[in-house]
């Protein structure tokens, strides 16, 4: 065995890969299944951006909380939300994470510190300030991560929350997943700054931009920022440049993208490919090791889809429950 040149143990490296692979397979399978018409509503796929959720959340435990976005499947999986329950939820089944009442955009598991995907852009930022405030009062050293895209980065809630976090010195990390498009609108059009990291100094917090397609870059930058927040150093901004492999939602023809853009990104910027190559090149693992994980993940997703399809729908009586704790 060679020396490990990475800041993670081999076990953690393989865990990170498995997480990214699970997200990728989950999303690619949804891409296929959605086209069949069995999945209600609409889904926003995270494929391509796996290194961000995984690189950030490898630093977290259940005491830490994340507030996610409409493109939330990857964040959920990386936070340890049950994949079978997630799939069942996306199919609108009674066995889903939210018993079929939330769907793709509202998957949550508070016991895992996952405060919900969110259908409202930028809405997670104030919520995570509250989570961080709760941790601060309890003194449990928990950290809050809020994700938002380059579109939601322009929401007042995000900007107000950055200011609030700075004013209250909260352990919050603001993670911009900049995939270049707010739905179909280019980031070049929608903002006057060259990079969102420029905004960090405007709120008196440090900011870093990394290649969000590079797991190790995300992991290292996030590690430092999260450690700082956990130790009482206050909030920070992490901007991750990423590419989404699919459209804004399933069914988006993506005509706003350049010709060949998706193909180029898949070929040259795929976080899974580069991760696998670097670990293999370092002599820590072989393609066979990764193939084995791929096989296991494929089976997991197969099983999740099959069980989701077979699962019962919510009973009609469920319409009226869970509105209040008591009413």
């Amino acid at each position: 065995m060679s020396d490990n040149p990475f800041p993670l143990s081999l076990e953690d490296l393989m865990r990170a890969y498995r997480t990214m692979r699970t997200i990728r397979d989950f999303e690619e399978r949804l891409h296929i299944e959605f086209a069949k018409g069995d999945i209600p509503g609409f889904v926003h796929l995270y494929a391509g951006e796996e290194a961000v959720a995984t690189g950030v959340q490898m630093h977290l435990t259940d005491i830490d909380r994340i507030a996610s976005t409409h493109r939330g499947h990857g964040h959920c999986i990386a936070k340890g939300v049950d994949v079978h329950e997630m799939m069942a939820e996306i199919y609108g089944k009674a066995t889903g994470s939210c018993r079929g009442k939330g769907g793709s955009m509202h998957i949550a598991d508070l016991s895992k510190g996952m405060m919900g995907a969110n259908g409202i852009l930028g809405a997670g930022a104030p919520l995570i300030c509250g989570a961080a405030l709760a941790s601060k009062f309890r003194g449990d050293r928990g950290v809050g991560i809020t994700y938002f895209g380059d579109g939601a980065a322009n929401q007042g809630t995000v900007l107000e929350s950055m200011n609030l976090a700075a004013a209250w010195d909260l352990p919050v990390v603001f993670v911009v997943e900049n995939n270049g498009y707010a739905e179909s609108t280019s980031v070049e059009f929608a903002t006057g700054v060259d990079s969102y990291v420029d905004r960090a100094s405007g709120f008196g917090m440090p900011g870093v931009t990394v290649d969000g397609m590079d797991f190790f870059a995300v992991y290292e930058a996030a590690g430092e920022i999260i450690r700082r927040a956990r130790d009482g150093g206050g909030p920070a901004l992490l901007e991750c440049s990423v590419a989404r492999f699919y459209g804004h939602f399933e069914g988006d023809a993506q005509t706003y993208k350049a010709k060949g853009e998706n193909e180029y990104n898949r070929e040259n910027r795929d976080c899974l490919k580069s991760f696998r190559k670097r670990v293999c090149d370092a002599g820590l693992a072989t393609d066979r090791d990764f193939d084995q994980i791929d096989l296991e993940v494929a089976r997991l997703i197969d099983d999740a889809v099959a069980s989701a399809k077979a699962a019962p729908l919510p009973k009609p009586s469920e319409l009226l429950t869970d509105v209040y704790v008591s009413y």
Binding site: R65, A67, L110, M115, A123, A125, P126, L127, I128, C129, G130, A131, L133, A134, S135, F137, R138, G156, T157, E160, S161, N163, L164, A167, W168
Partner: peptide
């Protein structure tokens, strides 16, 4: 806690803190 004049942020923070046990 006094707050900045940011109703979205602090009302949201109150809600987030409530979801986290406060």
């Amino acid at each position: 806690l006094d707050t900045p004049l940011s109703e979205s942020a602090y009302v949201g923070a109150a809600i987030g803190a409530a979801a986290c046990g406060m």
